Simulated assay, not measured.
Amino acid sequence: MTAARSANQDAIAAFLAMLAAERGAAANTLDAYRRDLNGAADLIGDLVGADRAALAGLGEAWAELAPASLARKASALRQFYAFLVDDGRRDDDPGDALPRLRPRRPLPRLLSHADIAALFAAAEADAATGDSAAIRMLALVEMLYGSGLRATELVSLSMVAVARDAPLLMITGKGGQQRMVPIGERARAALNTWLRMRPAGGRHVFPSPRGGHLTRVRLFQLLRDLALRAGLDPERVSPHVLRHAFATHLLEGGADLRVLQILLGHADIATTQIYTHVDGARLVDLVNKRHPLAGVAVKPAC
């Protein structure tokens, strides 16, 4: 192994250890950073000692990448070089020579209040028949829209996380991070009804007949079937769309962005800001009603 390659591997290992220890980065995140850094090292050789010209050349090597992939690789390297400076391995930070293309994050599809009402009307009508699968479906929908859970968080929910009549759920989210999520009265009632009918045994709230828990794919399928019965386009409905509707409708109702960040389990509030795409008319109305000068007459010019 060459000296440069050895130095690269040592620095990359130290950087990843820092991410794991100080930022609680998940294993998948660490693997992605490792691949990006090793890929850059394959292109320029001496990654630790690379100068600005070498890093600028990466833009050409990455020219065919999708914008999101290019932005991710550049971000990984910028963080890596900032770490090298902080760790005393370099005196300068050449990271500003890297491409700065920022991908546009597409907004998830949004369901209106009328769409949500139609979806719940169908779910409640199905559950009224007393069918256990329909009662389970109502509980799933109530918790997706009522608590903003991710699909994985919902299907993997354990019995120990659901204390009887407690207003909060203990959720384990991305990276193993835990958070408390409120569960509304409607969702609690639907969940309690399901728990009374739930098959005995197992540790998951929504068990699978084959063992383990309901899968994300099956949840996706069940939700689209429900959308069809509600008269909605099934292409517009998914677990994430309901989570998005939960966030957007809370903001429309006046929820604080920081509170929403906690409810959704976002590590960075920048992720939460994707849910602030309220319409321009509402923003104008908000300024006209809440600004300190709202309602103050304008003095005519002399």
Rank of each mutant, 00 (worst) to 15 (best):
D92R: 03
A117D: 15
E60Q: 09
A56C: 06
A66T: 00
D36Q: 10
R23C: 04
S75T: 15
N28D: 05
R109Y: 07
R52L: 12
D93K: 04
R90M: 02
L110V: 12
D92P: 06
G24Q: 06
R78A: 06
G24C: 00
L43Y: 09
A14W: 03
D46C: 15
A41P: 06
A74I: 05
D36I: 07
M18R: 12
N38W: 04
A97R: 13
A20N: 05
D93G: 08
R109P: 07
A40R: 09
F83A: 08
K73D: 01
H113Y: 03
T29L: 03
L70Q: 14
F80P: 01
R72D: 10
G24V: 01
R102P: 10
R52N: 00
L65Q: 10
D115P: 10
S69T: 15
R23W: 04
W62T: 09
S75D: 04
P108G: 06
A68G: 09
Q79P: 00
R102D: 00
G45W: 07
H113Q: 13
L16E: 04
A27S: 14
V48N: 03
D93C: 00
V48T: 12
A61R: 13
A41K: 14
A97Q: 10
M18S: 12
L37D: 05
P94S: 06
L70V: 01
S112L: 06
P99N: 01
A32V: 09
R89N: 00
L47N: 06
A20F: 03
G24T: 02
R90H: 12
R104I: 05
D42V: 14
D92M: 00
I116K: 04
H113N: 10
R109T: 06
F15W: 04
L101T: 10
R52V: 11
P106T: 07
L70A: 13
L101I: 13
A21I: 03
G45Q: 11
S112M: 04
L110N: 01
L101A: 10
P106A: 11
R23L: 00
D36R: 05
P103M: 02
D92V: 04
G24E: 10
A53R: 07
I44R: 06
A61K: 14
A82K: 14
D86E: 05
L58F: 14
L101P: 00
D92Y: 03
R109I: 07
L77V: 02
L58V: 05
L65M: 14
A32L: 01
Q79G: 15
L65C: 09
Y81L: 03
R52H: 05
D91Y: 00
G95W: 07
R109H: 05
S69N: 05
P108D: 01
S69L: 08
T29W: 08
R23M: 06
L110Q: 10
F80R: 00
L16H: 10
H113E: 11
L98Q: 05
L98V: 12
R109G: 15
N28Q: 13
A21T: 09
S75I: 02
A54L: 11
L107I: 08
